[in-house]
Write a protein that binds this DNA or RNA. Structure first.
Length: 273
DNA sequence: ACCCAGGCATTGG
DNA sequence: CCAATGCATGGG
């Protein structure tokens, strides 16, 4: 049992709610009171602890992944100070005290996850994605590693169609896996350049690129304004006639955290409850 | 049997 | 620039 300190307050269960809200996520598995994820072929178990989380095993391989997964790079103190100046967030952010948005540790996983969620309900997306994971990932303990880019570069599109992907999505995923794009190096580019590189790929549009900036790169100003969940949340908290795209400017430079708080807030602390 | 769901590419004005 | 269309599955 090794303690990974996290700035307080931190609510581990609230922060990981997204991994349970739409069914199990086999690559980020909530089981037995903890979050399980496979890192370099080993299962890592993360559980709530005083002052942070217990991580087993915690070593130089697993620590950076867990730090990314738990969103340690977000500066929640600055966000809370900003939120106090904005009427809706002034109520919502304290109500979600300790919520630290989790991130996708791997860029390829982040993109494939988003592609799987395009257009369909998140329940359908989780089901299809889990079939991808059990088919091409590797089990370690209770959880599975997400299928690697190298593995998915070898599949036939028809194999993915057999899992429930549309023919188009199967084509997008295989082509992305086989593409020349260096996903790791995107972290070095400014937001607009990341988006331009991603949108040039078939199957990746504005929505997927914004969520990549938000959920993988933790870019403060990412604002997935086209997202249906964010649209519902903005409508609920700011009124049905609010313009989702332009209201983002009000939250600068904390659009990303605002989006996460609004979307999660709608599920666990909707307005007027 | 419908209808919608955390999009996107394609086609045609 | 904008409107219409097909896509595959899960849940209501």
């Amino acid at each position: 049992m090794a303690l990974l300190r996290i700035p307080q307050p931190y609510d581990f269960a609230l922060s990981t709610e997204r991994y349970r809200a739409f069914g199990p996520d086999l690559a980020n598995l909530w089981h037995d009171g903890g979050l399980h994820r496979v890192v370099d072929g080993r299962e890592v178990r993360i559980t709530a602890a005083d002052g942070g989380v217990d991580v087993e095993p915690l070593d130089p391989q697993t620590e950076p992944v867990v730090r990314k997964l738990l969103g340690l790079e977000f500066d929640l103190d600055s966000f809370a100070a900003f939120a106090a100046t904005e009427p809706v967030l002034a109520r919502l952010v304290p109500a979600l005290a300790g919520f630290r948005p989790p991130l996708a540790p791997d860029p390829f996983e982040s993109l494939v996850t988003s592609i799987s969620a395009q257009q369909v309900s998140l329940f359908a997306a989780f089901a299809i994605r889990n079939r991808l994971i059990t088919s091409f990932g590797k089990r370690a303990g209770d959880a599975y590693s997400f299928p690697t880019r190298e593995r998915l570069a070898l599949v036939k599109e028809q194999e993915l169609v057999g899992l429930g992907f549309s023919g188009r999505k199967a084509e997008y995923i295989v082509a992305l896996a086989r593409s020349e794009l260096d996903l790791g190096s995107l972290a070095l580019l400014p937001d607009d350049d990341v988006k331009a590189e991603l949108v040039a790929q078939r199957g990746i549009g504005e929505w997927t690129a914004e969520w990549f900036l938000a959920r993988h790169l933790a870019r403060p100003q990412a604002w997935p304004w086209g997202d249906l969940g964010l649209r519902k949340a903005v409508a609920a908290f700011y009124g049905a006639d609010a313009d989702v795209r332009t209201i983002g400017a009000r939250f600068a430079p904390f659009q990303n955290l605002t989006a996460h708080y609004l979307v999660t807030g709608l599920r666990v602390h909707p307005p007027g409850d």
